[in-house]
Design a protein around this nucleic acid. Structure first.
Lengths: 203, 203
DNA sequence: ATGGTAACCTAGTGTTTGCTAGGTTAGTGA
DNA sequence: TCACTAACCTAGCAAACACTAGGTTACCAT
């Protein structure tokens, strides 16, 4: 065991947030003790309290970072919306982007869902920052396509909900099956769902 | 304060389970203390331990009852499947039945989701007893309609997933909005989603 | 009426929790 | 090189936790 390395405040703080994100996403706010947290960070408990006033504020910092970050996902989504792809290719791209993100960030959905269930003040942050804007953008895009006569005259709000629910179901299945489905059959499942969704909104 | 009423074991046990179901669905397993539990039941803590070996077994009993019960929902779903309604009416009926159930049992989804997230042994019980059979039945029904030429040749497994995800999204929105949406707009939202789903699977 | 007992209680147990007082060490600038 | 301080530690607090030993009371059969 080599002597412990001392880190500057900002780096240590980030290390704590990273480790805590893992733990909180696995077991929720109440399921993680500050002792575990400290051990996972490789430091002692008082160090946590030099960066965060209490456990709740540490949790809040994590939720905030989670909701504010994921720049790669946001960027790719924005790119998809900015592109002039036709509806089918556009929907495929969006679905693929989100599912790929969820595969690479298995913590994400758990963290968000835990915070919502546990009723944390900042639980709606992700909803307001990601889901709602996405929902709005998707609605507008679909409405535009309907106006252009590219899609049939369905309710764009309902369509956006179906799409989000469809993608979300992907996570629920993972939650129950424990990621036991192979990547290939997963890809097929997504394609099947997108296929039905597209048929549902096109003439 | 009138003298406390003594209940026979089976009635007291059921009273405990009922009260505990409420609390656990609101805050999850770790979010509820045995003291709260006892208070909510109107008894002292040792009474809990005369009916259940420990907190986990009480929780297990609740999950078991939740997964095994809801006979009204199961019966109505079975009736819908047994009926010879055409696909559109059938899908409308199923969606309406489930949504109506979720409105009357706001605890249900939370309890199931909490147990899944917290990784309880019996978490898959509901999935195995309700979701999976329903998924299978829906798949078979859709496949039959596809074979009869009533529906287009889509992937029935994917279709079932889209349907479940769509319904599930209804709960997620409630989770975030806190049941602030009025019943009428809710009904409209469901109808819009069912509409898209139906268009997605019909020719 | 009254004994027997199922149903319930008070008053704790040891353990774990979030959090802290007060001391120690590693790294840096002069 | 050495003093200063940011970064870290050990040790332990009070409160809350799941759970229990041992005594009390309401109810029912006789």
């Amino acid at each position: 065991m080599q002597p412990r390395k001392k880190l500057p405040a900002n780096e240590r703080r980030q290390a704590i947030v990273t480790a805590a994100t893992h733990l909180f996403s696995e077991r929720g706010f109440r399921g993680v003790t500050t002792r575990e947290l400290a051990k996972a960070c490789g430091v002692s408990e008082p160090v946590l309290y030099e960066h965060f006033a209490d456990k709740r504020q540490l949790y809040a910092a994590i939720l905030e970072q989670t909701a504010a970050s994921n720049p790669s996902l946001t960027r790719r989504i924005d790119e998809a919306f900015a592109s002039n792809l036709e509806a089918p290719q556009f929907i495929h791209l969006i679905a693929d982007t989100i599912v790929r993100f969820l595969d690479k960030n298995p913590n994400y959905s758990r963290l968000v869902l835990f915070s919502a269930l546990e009723g944390h003040d900042l639980a709606q942050l992700n909803f307001e920052h990601h889901m709602k804007p996405f929902h709005t953008m998707l609605m507008k895009r679909l409405q535009a396509d309907i106006d252009r006569g590219k899609l049939r005259a369905c309710d764009p709000a309902a369509a956006a909900r179906v799409f989000l629910g469809m993608i979300n179901q992907y996570f629920i299945y993972d939650l129950h099956f424990g990621f036991s489905i192979s990547k290939t059959s997963r890809k097929k499942a997504i394609e099947g769902m997108v296929d039905i969704f597209l048929h549902g909104i096109t003439k």
